[in-house]
Design a protein around this nucleic acid. Structure first.
Lengths: 148, 148
DNA sequence: TATTGTTATACTCTATAACTATA
DNA sequence: TATAGTTATAGAGTATAACAATA
């Protein structure tokens, strides 16, 4: 019996996690920390409150992640120019380079995965996966809305 | 600019995680614990060593998960019939019922997601996603093999 | 001597609540 | 009074290493 589409998608999620954990082991990085770097690369220098919102975690958690990333030289805390309560977190030069490399690898992986799909199926897969992501997003939002 | 296929797949993984966390909040369950229940449902009564292998975590970790699931009445430890060092972990009746229900919901979700895909694209999506899962599995295995 | 499970210890990610400094 | 960030505390998931009982 064939595995369900859902099982394939769950399997893909697990493989991504495994791949990332493996890639970061032996370094000071982790998926949570790299996620923060990724957000910083998109958003530019940000307050920790902003990062908490963008990452979907508590402000306290951001303190810990930034502490670790600052200790390893990946980010820098600088004073906020107008609000003396706040700090701006920004990527260091090292991290900027590192994240550019990561974006390249990300793009390469996308190409590699698309290459695994039969050429005649590629457009359908892109449409279909986008449709699945949207539907799933609606379901999760509905469940959340219905509960609260 | 359109999101990459890879980004859609990562997004789907995050949505699954969010959905499961939400489903289990307020209960004694978690994704790690339910994963163990799922494995037990497939494998039947098993030693903790076996569960550690099947879940891909350390034996010590299984001790903790089984402790929690035993306390909440989801699993039972019984003596191994021939090896007095080992225990067999098995689902309770409550858990068996619960997991059957979960399997039904799993199947319903599969149907729902497939329904989100245009009928003409469905076969291509099933083939394509399977191909992507396989390719990704190879890549992760290669990386692991190349490292060790 | 090898294996099963547990105790001991530690680290990361996560959360809430109380507190300090500022707005 | 409200906001930004930190300290304090807690819990889950994960790991390795040392140890007991048994094979």
């Amino acid at each position: 019996m064939e595995p369900l589409l859902l099982d394939r998608l769950l399997q893909i999620g697990e493989l991504f996690e495994k791949d990332m954990s493996r890639a970061f082991e032996g370094t000071s990085l982790s998926t949570a920390r790299v996620h923060l770097l990724w957000v910083l690369q998109d958003a530019g220098p940000s307050t920790q409150q902003t990062l908490a919102r963008l990452c979907g975690v508590s402000p306290r958690n951001i303190t810990g992640l930034v502490d670790a990333l600052e200790a390893s030289g990946h980010v820098r805390r600088t004073p906020h120019p107008t609000d003396r309560r706040a700090v701006l977190v920004e990527l260091t030069e090292m991290s900027t380079t590192y994240m550019a490399q990561m974006r390249r690898e990300h793009s390469d992986l996308d190409t590699e995965l698309l290459d695994a799909v039969a050429p005649a199926d590629r457009e359908a897969v892109q449409r279909g996966v986008a449709a699945i992501a949207n539907r799933l997003g609606e379901l999760v939002a509905d469940a959340r809305g219905g509960t609260s």
